[in-house]
Amino acid sequence: MKRNLRLKVLALILAAGATSAAQAYDGDWKRGRIYFRHVCTACHSAEVKKAIPPNERTKAEWAAYLQADKHNKGKDSVTKYFSKQYRDSIKSKNAAAAKFADVPENELLQDVKVFVNKGAKDGDAPAGCS
């Protein structure tokens, strides 16, 4: 029980730390725009032959999509494409992955979140492909 409590406290402290860290970073929509276009859209245009522009979905749809973290009809996760590992694997061919190779994963994720939220169908500045 004692041990249990200790763990509980630890978890709480850690969780609190996590949320405050996440809150401290607002997200940079311009960096999100670049990452989205150069990494996400670049692959979609090449592999799916069709971009998936932010203004194709509503803010709520984007939020839910990123929350669920299921990508490519559930075959993999969206966060995979923000990971350092993924960036490392494509950085020799992808200028954005190279430039942002050392940016923390959660920051990039936040950047793209802010960008798609803003560029969503009902966002503040709906954004197509260019």
């Binding site: 763990l7 509980k8 978890a11 850690l14 969780a15 730390g17 996590a18 860290a21």
Partner: peptide
């Protein structure tokens, strides 16, 4: 359950820590 939560949290936070 708690253990898992803690573990998850610490994993999540590993970089921050």
């Amino acid at each position: 359950g708690i253990f898992v939560v803690a573990l998850l949290a610490s994993m999540l936070l590993a970089p921050a820590v």
